[in-house]
Amino acid sequence: MDGNGRWARSRGASVAYGHREGVEAVQRCVRAAIKQGVQFLTLYAFSSENWKRSEEEIGNLTALLRFYLRHKLSELHEQNVKLQIIGEPERFGKTLNKELQEAQDKTANNKVLTLTLALSYGGRAELVKATKLLIEEVVKGQLSLDDINEQHLSNCLQTASIPDPDILVRTSGEHRLSNFLLWQSAYSELLFLDVLWPDFQENHFSEIIDHYGRRNRRFGGRPR
Rank of each mutant, 00 (worst) to 15 (best):
N4M: 05
N4P: 06
N4W: 04
R6V: 01
W7G: 06
A8F: 08
R9V: 13
R11F: 03
G12Q: 08
S14R: 13
S14A: 14
V15F: 13
G18M: 02
G18E: 00
G18Q: 03
H19I: 05
E21S: 12
G22W: 08
E24Y: 11
E24C: 10
R28G: 11
V30Y: 13
V30S: 08
V30D: 10
R31W: 11
A33T: 06
A33N: 07
Q36N: 13
G37I: 05
V38Q: 07
L41W: 05
T42H: 00
T42L: 02
A45H: 01
A45G: 02
F46M: 04
S47Y: 02
K52G: 10
K52E: 09
R53G: 06
E56R: 15
I58Y: 10
I58T: 08
N60H: 15
L61K: 04
A63T: 11
L65Q: 12
R70T: 14
R70K: 15
H71W: 13
L73K: 09
S74G: 11
S74R: 15
L76N: 03
L76T: 03
N80L: 08
N80T: 08
L83C: 08
Q84G: 06
I85Y: 08
T95E: 15
L96E: 09
K98G: 10
K98W: 14
K98L: 14
E99V: 04
L100E: 08
Q101S: 14
E102Y: 08
A103I: 01
Q104D: 09
K106W: 09
A108Y: 07
K111W: 01
K111V: 08
V112S: 15
V112M: 15
L113M: 05
L115G: 05
L117M: 12
L119C: 04
Y121K: 00
R124G: 00
L127P: 05
L127A: 09
L127M: 13
K129N: 11
K129T: 07
K129Y: 07
A130W: 04
L133G: 14
L133T: 12
L134W: 01
I135R: 11
E137D: 13
V138H: 06
Q142D: 13
Q142W: 03
D146K: 12
D146I: 10
D147H: 12
I148H: 04
N149K: 14
H152D: 10
L153S: 08
Q158F: 02
A160M: 05
S161N: 09
I162Y: 05
P163H: 09
D166G: 03
D166F: 01
V169Q: 03
T171M: 03
G173Y: 06
E174I: 02
H175R: 15
R176G: 01
L177P: 02
L177T: 03
L177R: 02
N179V: 00
N179L: 00
L181N: 02
L182C: 04
Q184D: 09
S185Q: 05
L190E: 02
F192V: 07
L193M: 14
V195P: 14
V195Y: 11
F205Y: 13
S206D: 15
E207G: 10
Y212C: 02
R214P: 00
R215I: 11
N216S: 13
R218Q: 12
R218I: 05
R218H: 07
R218V: 07
F219N: 06
F219W: 05
F219V: 03
G221L: 14
P223R: 09
R224V: 12
